[in-house]
Design a protein around this nucleic acid. Sequence first.
DNA 1: AATGAATGAGCCTTCATTCAT
DNA 2: GATGAATGAAGGCTCATTCAT
Lengths: 208, 208, 208, 208
Amino acid sequence: MQHRAVETRARILDAAARVFSRHGYAAGTTNRIAAEARLSVGSLYQYFPNKDAILVELVRRHLDQGFHAVVDRLAAIDADGPDRTRRLLAATVDAMIANHVDDPGLHQVLFEESPRPPELLAELHAVEDRAVDLAAAVLAADPEVHVADPATAARVVVTTIESLVHRAVATRDRKVDLPAFRHELTTMLERYLFAPPPRPPGTDDEPD
Amino acid sequence: MQHRAVETRARILDAAARVFSRHGYAAGTTNRIAAEARLSVGSLYQYFPNKDAILVELVRRHLDQGFHAVVDRLAAIDADGPDRTRRLLAATVDAMIANHVDDPGLHQVLFEESPRPPELLAELHAVEDRAVDLAAAVLAADPEVHVADPATAARVVVTTIESLVHRAVATRDRKVDLPAFRHELTTMLERYLFAPPPRPPGTDDEPD
Amino acid sequence: MQHRAVETRARILDAAARVFSRHGYAAGTTNRIAAEARLSVGSLYQYFPNKDAILVELVRRHLDQGFHAVVDRLAAIDADGPDRTRRLLAATVDAMIANHVDDPGLHQVLFEESPRPPELLAELHAVEDRAVDLAAAVLAADPEVHVADPATAARVVVTTIESLVHRAVATRDRKVDLPAFRHELTTMLERYLFAPPPRPPGTDDEPD
Amino acid sequence: MQHRAVETRARILDAAARVFSRHGYAAGTTNRIAAEARLSVGSLYQYFPNKDAILVELVRRHLDQGFHAVVDRLAAIDADGPDRTRRLLAATVDAMIANHVDDPGLHQVLFEESPRPPELLAELHAVEDRAVDLAAAVLAADPEVHVADPATAARVVVTTIESLVHRAVATRDRKVDLPAFRHELTTMLERYLFAPPPRPPGTDDEPD
DNA sequence: AATGAATGAGCCTTCATTCAT
DNA sequence: GATGAATGAAGGCTCATTCAT
């Protein structure tokens, strides 16, 4: 039955997420995943052609969910109020943190220690590019943002958020004071975006 | 024999670096490493108790070399000239990029896809902490740097450099326009550190 | 339901023939056969107790069809004309070739690469024996055939035809010029059967 | 050590021969082969890259040994005595029978039920072609041999011997009275080769 | 009767590690 | 100290067969 099958696929993915998160990719054996999903290996292989396919699907799912979580969150931001860019920035950082907080270990496995077929890399890049485009539009529309090139600035912002959030929360490494981290990250990005425009020649800005 | 042994250890580590870089951690078998080092597996196991020990040593070596490369570079910076912090910052970024550029693949393996025993994590953290301390001292000494807490700001700077440089150059992912990246990263960090001080009390910015 | 069931069995056998021919015995999975027969595996197992049973039935069917094809062809030969034996021989060779030409691959699977339970071997032998008996009768009745023992000669003829035709056409190996093969095979067998009788005693050729 | 390694390879091949002969290709598992060779699977895989490679080597070995056995036997035949062709024929048949008698089951596995990579088929054909060439030379040199085309006749002889000997002795099927088989096969081939030449035109044998 | 999801034994292969030489 | 053959546990995956629906 269609419904049943979809459910089983999901169960396998959930199980794989738990197993990978706990054991890493290499030690996340298909037998373990099957067991965790209360299924036989054979069944697992009726839903996925091989172990990597599970991983790929898992990454895809996380990517989608993460992207949508951010987009949804941003959609709730008042489009026209004051400080729009600042509020979008903060919301994005929050959403990204939320995306990772659930299962830090999983992200490590999914985005670092696993083999990523080129096809998947392409998707990763596509999602990032979409985010950059969205951000660039926001920056370009805000007169208070003084950056040489909105596209470049947008990419900096996006990759910085991704990298630092990932590092701060999505690692099995040392954990971090989240609120402080959140504050400092937004501060840095705000200063980057809203820095006073370079002085016109002749004007001095920072007197001794 | 002491000397000979040290040399052999180094040869194994070099071989391991090449093998891991080429094949990744999982496919970097001990036999391949031994072969690359023109050694028998048996001999390899007289120098290292197991595969992970090689990895650990390799990470340690890289960490040390990287740290020293940065420190050496910074030592060459004129301690008292103007814009000292800015110059240190730029030098650090340059040194970090240099650290990764040689062998991007290896860093990926060493710091992402390999198992890292807690013991190794502790060392990682220690090195980072040292860097943070050094940076904090620099920030605290510079009157133009207006940050609430030099220690926090130092950590932000250090982790941002690490994360973004790593992401930009030490990945097998999509590659990046390095000079542009370098410029944008320093710009962001400078704006973060040298932002005009918060308005004097009485002006409200973020009310309770 | 009797009729329906018979039809379904036939459909399964046909499907199995196609699948075995295409994929070989090992890769001819029951699932593939079921799919090819537009049936579920479950249903397939209601018609055959296991995979080997399908194979056995298939061999049986091929044997029967092949035997009857030959017999029918021979029945069309004028029983009393001159050169009766020669014509029967030619017709047999033609019929055997015809039997294999349709689906060379299938014969390879059925008679070479598959497991043959003893029960099946017995049937194979029975069919061959019947053919030998028929041939022996023909030889014995022909005064121009000078063989020591019609039964032995009959077996030689039958097995030679079987083996060589099989080899010539029922292999995935190198293919063969059929008309030439056909001519040479009949020539050889005719010479075998119609060789001039051994010289009357007194002439020595192969002394004791 | 070179010698030790060669010996181990041979031990594996011998073990594989026994295991394949007993269980067939599919059920001749690498673990069984290793066990039969009193070796661990791991070791087996240090000598052969995979199961098929063992098979290929085994086929090659058998082919070589078989071919040489025949050639050696023929070399012992007096080159210039009377009835040279007849004696060569008999010797060939004997040698071929000898080749198969040792381990009938193995031939079945090696040449029928196993997957044969194209590369191996090519070798098979090459050996056969060599044998055909040799035979053709013999036939062409014998004035008593009346065949339209020595090359064709040679191929008929070679394939007939191969096929019938194989069928008679190298099968797990019903076994056969070897001396009788031997006699009948040579008889047939001799009659084929030494049949009286076709009548000169003007003599009628087969009137319209 | 039919369906097709589920089962699980067992296959081929890899690789960190050991040990006889 | 060195060598490299040997080990064997364990992994990914297949497929004949069963069984709940």
